[in-house]
Amino acid sequence: MKYLWTEDTGAGLHFWKLVNQLFFDDEFIVESKGSNQGLLDAVLDLDIKDDDKYYIAFDYVVDNQDIRNKYRVLKSIEKSSEGKIIILDMICFEYLILAFDKLVEWTGTGKTDKIKIREEVLKAVENHRINLLKIDDEKTLQYIAGFNRYSTERVMKSLAGEFTQNEKWSVKGSLMGECWYKDCCVSEHSDSLRCGKPEVEDGSGKMRMLIQSEEIKKILSIITEIQG
């Protein structure tokens, strides 16, 4: 059996299930382990059978010491698993949404300040962190400085939320917002909440475009290369 385990619940888990459906023809058993600790505990408890493979979607940022410690344990297990456990190279689900090149166009946000901050943050991402030395825009630095407990993952989650406040595009609920995966698009406008219009309205077409975006393709290439 092939398994894809994530720490994400809600919209993040839903995302991986859609990836499994649309990109892998449902060949994986997709499961949430509830948290990064739950994910680590599940891997530690594994009794791997000969034909099993486990792909681990672990949110990894280097500026969080607790996550770094858990990741080191995961890596040691991966190295001794003889290719049965494979860690996917990712920061977090929200970063995949934030880095999607159609995000601003599709959601139709009018937050010009956040659009600029998003651009600056994405340009500064390297080695699973935001390299603050690469940012010289004062408003972006002020935005990041506003976090009581700064980490790359917190910034990604917050920024992704800024662009997906409309419930139809939300990535915070029990499922991804309907406009990501259904044959519809937001049509209502209000003074405080704007919305865009994707070039395709077919639900699977929109999800396939998201899945084929650069950052997600990097992660999925790990699976496709191993599967041969």
Rank of each mutant, 00 (worst) to 15 (best):
L103P: 03
F58M: 14
I115K: 11
D89M: 09
S81G: 06
D51C: 08
F58T: 06
I67S: 02
V121G: 06
I77T: 06
Q65I: 11
D63S: 05
D51N: 12
C92P: 01
Q65A: 12
K53H: 12
Y60P: 05
K49C: 12
D50T: 08
L74V: 09
L44Y: 07
E120D: 12
Y54Q: 00
K75N: 04
E78D: 10
I77S: 04
Y54K: 08
I91R: 11
D89T: 03
Q65E: 14
Y71S: 03
V121K: 06
G110K: 13
L103Y: 00
R72C: 08
V43E: 02
D50G: 10
L74F: 15
D89F: 00
E120S: 11
L44G: 05
L98Q: 00
K49E: 13
G108D: 06
V104R: 09
C92M: 12
D50V: 07
K70H: 15
N64T: 12
K70Q: 15
I85D: 02
A99H: 05
N64D: 15
E94H: 09
I117C: 04
K111V: 00
L74R: 12
C92N: 12
R68F: 04
D113R: 09
V61M: 02
K49F: 11
K79H: 13
I91M: 07
Y54F: 11
Y95N: 02
G83M: 02
Y55V: 01
L74A: 00
A42M: 01
L88Q: 07
D45Y: 06
T109C: 06
I48T: 09
D89C: 03
G108H: 14
S81F: 07
R68T: 09
